[in-house]
């Protein structure tokens, strides 16, 4: 089945089995290996990506259902040297350890902060309830998201346009150039 969709802002076209998991299409076909595979049954959230702006487990999304839709992976948030405030806060506050869960956590946190720029800890915990981490004990992840929220609000005040908050658009373009499908 021919599938046209946008990944991290760039138009992509695949000829793939329709029931192939979006996770495999991203990793194996498009070379976007930032999205990780954990449980493969929708429990752990390691493969979380945004589908039309909403967080989904890419292990449970057939790529055939992505026709005409927009996907954002962790590569769409920022790249080495051009990290988004959210990614930077995970480094600064120890929110990432082994790193397998981190891309999914970042995507869920990005979704939260786009909808709620000033979340309390309960809101952060609920937003990340579908992302399991076996390293951090979660507290540092919560602190990282809380710090990112403060940073993004400050950026928004400086920039004056809340839609620009944390987009790291320049970094996103760089990542596209580097991650063209083979």
């Amino acid at each position: 089945m021919k599938i046209s969709f946008k990944v991290n802002g760039a138009a992509r076209e695949l000829d793939a089995p329709p029931l192939q998991r979006l996770l495999d299409a991203l990793r194996l076909v498009l070379g976007l290996t930032g999205t990780k595979e954990g449980c493969a049954e929708g429990e752990c959230g390691a493969c979380t990506v945004l589908l039309d702006g909403e967080p989904v487990n890419a292990c449970l999304v057939p790529v055939g259902q992505c026709q005409g839709r927009e996907i954002t992976t962790v590569e769409g948030l920022g790249a080495a040297g051009h990290l988004s405030p959210l990614q930077r806060c995970f480094i600064d506050h120890g929110g990432a350890q082994c790193g397998i869960c981190t891309p999914g956590v970042l995507i869920s946190a990005e979704h939260l902060l786009r909808r709620n720029p000033d979340p309390d800890d309960d809101a952060i915990r609920e937003a990340l309830a579908g992302n399991l981490c076996r390293c951090t004990g979660y507290q540092r992840i919560i602190e990282s998201v809380r710090a990112a929220a403060v940073l993004r609000r400050a950026d928004a005040r400086d920039v004056g346009d809340p839609r620009d908050v944390g987009d790291a658009r320049g970094a996103r373009d760089v990542s596209h150039d580097r991650q063209e499908a083979p």
């Binding site: 929708g42 967080p55 989904v56 449970l60 869920s108 609920e126 309830a129």
Partner: peptide, 12 residues
């Protein structure tokens, strides 16, 4: 709906 699963499941 809030309890049916995490937000990734709610979205699907």
């Amino acid at each position: 709906g809030r309890d049916i699963g995490a937000i990734q499941i709610q979205a699907r």
